[in-house]
Design a protein around this nucleic acid. Structure first.
Length: 579
RNA sequence: GCCGAUGUAGCUCAGUGGUAGAGCAACGCUUUCGUAAAGCGUAGGUCGUCAGUUCAAUCCUGACCAUCGGCUCCA
C-alpha cells in the first residue's frame, strides 16, 4: 500500500483496512505468501500476493471465515513510524522482499510507517479505521493475475478482489447491483436478443445478425447525416490494405506494428489498416488546398483491424475488427480552438441524446513513445487544455496516455459492470502532416503546414453498441429498435386485417413484423415482451370491426384506439434519430 | 501474451471411468383462444479439438482452440 495515495474518505479507510485483514488471513492460512500492495479502489479493495499456493474460489470462502474471526477480536489499527533501516530489517526478518523493494524505492527522507492490527504488521502509509471490528460487511469477490508494479515484464502475482461497506445492507445492495448488471451484459443480451454472434474461426470479430445489423446501420446513418448535413464533413472511403511504405511514413511500423495484421503478396509486405489516418493524409496530399478550404473534414466509417492480444478480447468492447465513426480535420493553427470547441459541443449533443454520462480526460505525452518536437507537444497539450477550460468542461489529466502522434481528449462511458470504456476521442496532431509533407496555400501565396485533428464521437460502432445494449438493457429506443412494432393476432380469423395493418405501418418506414403463430395471445405477448419490441398491436375481432388499433407499449401501457394511419404517423415521428 | 476459471442438444443447465439427460426452442397433432408461457407426441448430441493413460474416456493426463474474470494494452 505504501506507494499508493493514503486513503482519505471514510469508506476508503474501511476498505484499505479490510485489505490488511485479508492479507493477515492469507498469511495465517498460507504463511509462505509474500505481501505486496493492497489499496482501496472505487468498488472495494484488492491485495496482491506472491504465493506458492494458487487461490481458488473455495479459498475465498475460507479466507472470509478467517477474516470474520479477525474482525471479531476487534484489535485497533496502530501506526508506528520507523527509520528506513528499521523497516528494511523488519521485512528482511519476515522475508518480505516486495516490501523491501518498495522501501528502497521511496524518496530520501520519506516518512516510513508500519500499521499493525493484532499480530499483523504491514508497510503502509496509513488511512485506516480505528479497529478491525468496524469491518462488518465485506465479501471477497474474485481472484485474478496482476503484474508486480503493473509491468508485464515483472512476475505475475495473484490478486484477490473484495469489497466492504459500513453496513450489511449496503453490501447487499451492491451485490444485488452486480447481479442486475450481469443481466444487462451486452454479450448475454446480444445473444438472447439475436443481435450478434461470434465464432471461433473469427476471434474478436462479430457476426452482425439481421437485428444487430439494423442497429449498426441506423447508427451509421444517423452519424453520417449529422456530420455531412450539419457538421461540414465530406464522407470518403479508403483502401484497407496498404504497402509497408505507407506505415513507415506514418510511423505505425515503428510504433504500432505489433498491433497490426500484415501479409505478403508478390514479395511486397502489406499491412491491414488499424486506423484511417494515413489514408486520409494521402488523400489530402493528392490535391492543392487553399487556406479558404480549411477546415477540411473527412469522415470515414471504414473497416479497421487491430491484432489485439487474445487475452484482451472481450465481447464487443474489445475486438480485432471494427469501424469507427472516424474523421480527420485539416486546419490552420488559428482554427484549432474554435474547432475543438465545436467538437466538444458535438460530443455533448450526441451523448445527451442517449442520456449517456461521460468522464473526460486529457491524455498527455508518453515520454517513451512519441514522435516530433517537445515544444510542439507542449503547444498541442496547452491548446487542448485551453479549449476544455474555456468551455467549462470538467476533466482530469492522464499523464503518459497520449497517442504516439499527439495529445488527446478522451471520453469514457461506464458499462453495466462498472468498467470504463473509451468511446469518443479528440486528438491533436502536428506530426502526421509533417511526415506526409502536407501543405495548403496561405493568404500570402506561400505553402503552410496544416494541423490535423483525429476525432471520433461514438468511438467504434462495436463498442458503442455494446454500451448502448447495456445502457438500455436491450430495450432500444424506437429509432434503434430492430423490430419497432409487432402485429399480433388473437386468432387466425384476423390475419388478413393484421397483414393490412403491418403493410400500412411499413409504408411509414417502420420495421414491423407479424405474429400469426397458433400460440395463445398471452404467449405471443410474452414473446414480444421478452424480445423487447417497443410496440405491440393486438388485432382481434374488436379491431377488425372498428378498423382501429390500440398499441400496447413495451412498458405495459395500453394506448387509446386510433386509426392505423394516425399510429403510423405518430411512430414515424418518434422513430426519428434524436440528433 | 500472462495468471486463473470454463467449454455437454439451437438456448439455459444437470450428470457419470462402462459410449448421456431436463426445461425452453424446433417439428407434428389437438386446441382458435383478448394482453407475460395451452396439451400430447417426435426428432435432436463423434460431451470444444487432437493426442495419451486404460480392457473401456464425455469423465483421468497433456497440448491446442475458444470464451469468461483480471493484468498488460487499448476505440
Amino acid at each position: 500500500m505504501a506507494d499508493n495515495q493514503a486513503p482519505s474518505a471514510p469508506l476508503d479507510k474501511l476498505r484499505h483496512s479490510a485489505a490488511h485483514v485479508l492479507a493477515d488471513a492469507v498469511q495465517r492460512l498460507w504463511p509462505d505468501s509474500k505481501l505486496t500492495i493492497g489499496p482501496p479502489i472505487e468498488t472495494g479493495f484488492y491485495y496482491d500476493f506472491d504465493s506458492e499456493h494458487t487461490f481458488s474460489e473455495e479459498d475465498l470462502r475460507k479466507l472470509e471465515e478467517v477474516m470474520a474471526g479477525i474482525v471479531k477480536v476487534n484489535d485497533p489499527f496502530v501506526e508506528k513510524e520507523v527509520t528506513r533501516e528499521e523497516a528494511i530489517a523488519y521485512f528482511k526478518e519476515r522475508n518480505e522482499p516486495y516490501k523491501i523493494e518498495l522501501i528502497n524505492s521511496f524518496a530520501e527522507g520519506s516518512r516510513i510507517t508500519l500499521h499493525s492490527h493484532g499480530g499483523f504488521t504491514d508497510l503502509c502509509r496509513g488511512g485506516h479505521c480505528h479497529t478491525t471490528g468496524e469491518i462488518k460487511a465485506f465479501k471477497l469477490l474474485s481472484v485474478a493475475g496482476a503484474y508486480w508494479r503493473g509491468d508485464s515484464k515483472n512476475k505475475q502475482l495473484q490478486r484477490i478482489y473484495g469489497t466492504a461497506f459500513f453496513a450489511k445492507a449496503d453490501l447487499d445492495v451492491y451485490l444485488k447491483q452486480l447481479e442486475e448488471a450481469e443481466k444487462r451484459d451486452h454479450r448475454k443480451l446480444g445473444k438472447e436478443l439475436g443481435l450478434l454472434a461470434f465464432h471461433p474461426y473469427a476471434p474478436g470479430a462479430a457476426f452482425w445478425l439481421p437485428k444487430g445489423a439494423t442497429v449498426y446501420h441506423e447508427l451509421q446513418a444517423a452519424m453520417r447525416r449529422l456530420l455531412t448535413k450539419e457538421g461540414g464533413y465530406k464522407e470518403v472511403r479508403t483502401p484497407m490494405l496498404f504497402k509497408s511504405k505507407l506505415w513507415e511514413t506514418s510511423g505505425h511500423w515503428q510504433h504500432y506494428r505489433d498491433d497490426m495484421f500484415t501479409l505478403e503478396a508478390e514479395g511486397d509486405e502489406y499491412g491491414l489498416k488499424p486506423m484511417n489516418c494515413p489514408s486520409h493524409m494521402i488523400m489530402f496530399g493528392m490535391g492543392l488546398h487553399s487556406y479558404r478550404d480549411l477546415p477540411m473534414r473527412m469522415h470515414d466509417q471504414g473497416v479497421l483491424h487491430r491484432n489485439e492480444l487474445s487475452g484482451a478480447l472481450s465481447g464487443l468492447t474489445r475486438v480485432r475488427q471494427f469501424c469507427q465513426d472516424d474523421a480527420h480535420i485539416f486546419l490552420r493553427p488559428d482554427q484549432i480552438e474554435a474547432e475543438i470547441t465545436s467538437l466538444l459541443g458535438l460530443v455533448r449533443r450526441v451523448y445527451d441524446a442517449f442520456d449517456l454520462g461521460l468522464k473526460i480526460k486529457l491524455s498527455t505525452r508518453n515520454p517513451e513513445k512519441f514522435l516530433g518536437e517537445l515544444a510542439q507537444w507542449e503547444a498541442a497539450e496547452a491548446s487542448l487544455e485551453a479549449a476544455l477550460k474555456t468551455n467549462g468542461i470538467e476533466y482530469r489529466i492522464e499523464p503518459h496516455e497520449a497517442a504516439f502522434y499527439g495529445p488527446k481528449i478522451d471520453f469514457d462511458v461506464t458499462d453495466a459492470l462498472g468498467r470504463k470504456w473509451q468511446t469518443a476521442t479528440i486528438q491533436l496532431d502536428y506530426q502526421i502532416p509533417e511526415r506526409f509533407d502536407l501543405h495548403y496555400i496561405g493568404e500570402d501565396g506561400a505553402k503552410h503546414r496544416p494541423v490535423v485533428i483525429h476525432r471520433a464521437i461514438f468511438g467504434s460502432f462495436e463498442r458503442f453498441i455494446a454500451l448502448l445494449i447495456e445502457h438500455y438493457a436491450g430495450a432500444f429506443p424506437l429509432w434503434l429498435a430492430p423490430e419497432q412494432a409487432r402485429v399480433v393476432v388473437v386468432s387466425d380469423k384476423q390475419e388478413a386485417f393484421a397483414r393490412e395493418v403491418g403493410a400500412k405501418l411499413a409504408a411509414h418506414g417502420l420495421r414491423v413484423d407479424l405474429d400469426v403463430s397458433k400460440d395463445k395471445l398471452g404467449a405471443k405477448i410474452r414473446r414480444a415482451q421478452v424480445e423487447k419490441v417497443p410496440y405491440m398491436l393486438v388485432i382481434g375481432d374488436k379491431e377488425v370491426e372498428a378498423g382501429t388499433v390500440s398499441a400496447r407499449r413495451r412498458d405495459g401501457k395500453q394506448m387509446d384506439p386510433e386509426t392505423v394511419e394516425a399510429l403510423g404517423l405518430r411512430l414515424a415521428e418518434e422513430a426519428k434519430p434524436p440528433f
